[in-house]
Design a protein around this nucleic acid. Structure first.
Lengths: 235, 235
DNA sequence: ACCTGAACACCGTTCAAGT
DNA sequence: ACCTGAACACCGTTCAAGT
């Protein structure tokens, strides 16, 4: 995989045609994404960038989903895992790692979307899994419960980031949609939807950051209080 | 919106060209999805079904995302909300509603995917929101906390369904990807990834149903134990 | 083995022109 | 106002043929 920010294609100076290898392809894909956004990282556009036809890429990459998964794994190198070895409350450190992961995905919500479907399984992803398991272990969460908990935590973080994929291309769409939901909630009839009407705008309240953090706290507290089925309920 | 299973386009017998109205379009889209899957519900294919050109649809539907959102709201009519008024433990009834919602989405994971990005705001969605708020209220969850909790619960259910979108077209892709993750976990080095290596296959264990149910329990327990920031911590 | 030109079978969306 | 033919600007993927 490409190292973060080291697009050195060879020791010669900028050849017109970068080497056609899996790593070269993925490195170019990452650069293309940073330059033009994920929506431009298509087989055709990428092939054009590499001065070849799209068919050539299929020698190294099974399909577009796999390409995006590889790009994501590369991006995961930017997640800050230093809180694992730091001192302080394990919960705080766990939330810090998860927040870093979410922030990385926030930069490319489309990638979060695809991560939900094509789970990554690269080296950086394993690094992240191991970090989360280490912190849950520190917190005394039994191993078999932690195994399920990491999934839950990452799914929440990933889907939160994916939700922002709407405004990626056209921010107006996202705003219009938010306005539609707000209008629907405000216009809720007290008869058919009494609870929605009673809460009203409360349902949309609060900055995203606070909701994300609250979500992490809910999950951690929940994991601490919920044994896995068929398992002794030692915390 | 279309009533479930009543594609009566007019009182005449099956005209070749159904009326071109928003409801007619969405009804046809739902039928097309049931017949050929969401991936065929495109503006072009839908226009063809309606014996017209794609441009005509843009009079009634802003874009593809809005079309899919409308289809989803129609589908939401199949969610079983009867547990709200039933007797028994509120937690069980809450989980039953959420499970029904998840099962509806499981039938069309692609729709779950799009729901994550383009949040629905139709009548059936409000019905669902109101049902969940009613049950949380019964459980004594304070209103402003319940307002955030429904989001969390629906996000978890929706993203769980969305994860299955991989195998929708080509099940081989989904299997290959699962195998890749399994291989990566099994091959985890005890040095770089000790916790992953120690848990090994445990990370993938258990039937999806059990994990879904455990997830709901974690969220409910977590919500019960986690006050919203800046709020008195009365349960 | 690796690479590719060309083709197949599609997309979403816009716009000028019609009724 | 509503509707549409035609066009613009793209897609993913495969395959037969070349090197």
């Amino acid at each position: 995989m490409t190292e973060q920010n080291s697009p050195r294609p060879s020791r010669r100076e900028r050849p017109a045609k970068p080497a056609l290898t899996r790593d070269g392809i993925i490195g170019t894909a990452v650069a293309l994404m940073r330059a033009e956004g994920l929506q431009r990282v298509t087989m055709r556009r990428l092939a054009q960038e590499l001065d070849t036809g799209p068919a050539s890429l299929y020698v190294y990459v099974r399909n577009t989903a796999e390409l995006h998964a590889a790009v994501l794994d590369d991006l995961l190198g930017a997640v800050d895992l230093t809180p694992v070895g730091a001192s302080g409350d394990w919960r705080d450190r766990l939330v810090r790692v998860l927040t870093s992961y979410t922030n990385v995905l926030f930069e490319h919500p489309g990638l979060a979307r695809s991560a939900l479907v094509a789970r990554p399984s690269g080296e950086r992803y394993l690094d992240l899994l191991d970090a989360l398991l280490a912190l849950l272990g520190e917190g005394g969460v039994p191993g078999e419960r932690a195994a399920w908990a990491v999934d839950l935590l990452l799914q929440f973080a990933t889907s939160t980031a994916a939700e922002h994929a709407a405004g990626e291309k056209d921010p107006a769409d996202a705003e219009g949609e938010w306005a539609a939901l707000a209008a629907a909630l405000r216009g809720a009839s007290g008869e058919r939807h009494p609870h929605v009407a009673a809460l009203g705008t409360e349902l949309l309240s609060g900055p995203g950051e606070a909701r994300l953090d609250w979500g992490f706290q809910v999950l951690i507290n929940g994991v601490l209080h919920t044994p896995r089925p068929g398992t002794p309920d030692t915390p």
